[in-house]
Simulated assay, not measured.
Amino acid sequence: MIRVVEVASLRTGCLHAVHPLVAADPKAGVILLSTWGIGPEIRRWDIGSGDSLWDSVEELPGCNDSVLASLTPGRCILAVSTEDGVERWNALTGEPMSGVYSAESTVWRLAAGSLPNGQAMLVGAGHGGAVHRWDADSGEPLGPPLLGHATTVLSVGFGYVSESEAVIMSGDDSGFLRRWDAKTGNPLGDSVAGHASQVNVIAAVPLNRVRNAFASSDADGEICRWDAATGEQIGAPLATGMEVYTLATVCPGGTPLLLAAGSNGVVGMWNAITCEPMGIPLRGISAAAIDQPDGTSLVVTGTSQGEMIVYSLSV
């Protein structure tokens, strides 16, 4: 049984939707950021006191998505995708980092992960049907864009099939999904007609310590799960009854959970393996989550009124 405790509520000062980002760093502890607005406005928060540690109001051409990418202990970057590519900041200090990840077009969604050799990577869903890969530290492209979608790529995910192989999954606005070798960029198998409408969100789902599946959600809020190694669908689709804005996963006490947040203001929670509903709705339209060394998990949700709520999950 999963035990959920609300441990903090942070008023961001924003009066509209806020998107939380959270990461665990061995030196810095829990890193919590929020993004909102067309600008966007970005802030880092002290999760204990609720104080703002830094903020940036740099004008950007929109904020389509944002991710945190861990480089080494004590080094973490924030990447924000815009209509002109991707920009980045030092997530700990708020200092803008030199250079722009330029895809020369709109980047809709981002994913972050580390290759088996430890190199941190950013992956972008490109407007021109391309999937982009960048070195998260230097901002340099990792090879040419990956081409294989006939229409605009709207979502990307980064996961693992073993300790030595990382995989990218991408989804487009025609409902098709593709898999790629994250290191070489080579396509893995053929494209799959995974959804009846555009694929808005993709997230890696933990199956065990070294292997992931992928979860994808379309414009109707249907979630499908995919074997990262074979590309085959796992089980039946899951109907959420809402437009899903974010997917997140955590494993409190070793129990893999899938969270979906979206238009109805409730964060649904399911067992990631069986899709059994946990019956523990949380408040929010977006969610981010991390596992902690003591076996508990933190889930941070963002509401449409600018509030961030921190929950602790345990077994």
Rank of each mutant, 00 (worst) to 15 (best):
V7Q: 12
L10C: 01
L10W: 01
R11D: 00
T12E: 07
G13I: 15
A24V: 12
A24W: 04
P26F: 03
G39M: 15
E41P: 08
I47S: 01
S49D: 15
S49K: 11
G50H: 02
W54N: 02
S56A: 10
E58Y: 02
L60K: 13
G62F: 15
N64P: 14
L68P: 02
A69S: 05
L78Y: 14
L78T: 11
S81H: 02
T82P: 06
D84L: 15
G85N: 02
E87S: 06
E87I: 15
W89V: 07
W89N: 11
G94H: 13
V100R: 01
Y101M: 06
Y101A: 01
S105I: 00
W108E: 09
L110V: 14
L110W: 10
A112N: 14
Q119I: 06
Q119L: 12
M121T: 04
V123L: 00
V123T: 06
A125Y: 06
G126F: 05
H127L: 11
G128K: 07
A130Q: 15
V131H: 09
H132V: 13
A136D: 01
G139V: 05
L142N: 10
L146H: 07
V153A: 14
V153G: 15
S155I: 10
G157R: 05
G159D: 09
E163W: 01
E163Q: 08
I168A: 05
M169K: 13
L177H: 10
A182P: 04
K183H: 12
N186K: 01
P187V: 11
P187Y: 15
V192D: 10
A193W: 03
G194T: 05
A196E: 09
Q198S: 07
V199P: 13
N200G: 06
I202R: 02
R209A: 15
V210S: 10
N212G: 05
S217H: 01
D227A: 11
A228P: 02
G231V: 03
E232P: 13
Q233P: 12
I234C: 05
G235Y: 00
E243W: 00
V244M: 01
L247I: 02
G254R: 02
T255I: 07
L257A: 03
A261C: 08
W270N: 03
N271R: 06
I273G: 06
E276D: 13
M278G: 09
G279V: 04
I280C: 07
P281T: 03
P281Q: 08
G284N: 13
S286K: 02
A289T: 06
D291N: 13
Q292K: 12
G295S: 15
V299N: 14
V300G: 04
T303W: 00
T303Q: 04
S304W: 05
S304G: 13
G306K: 08
M308C: 07
M308E: 05
I309C: 12
V310Y: 06
S312E: 13
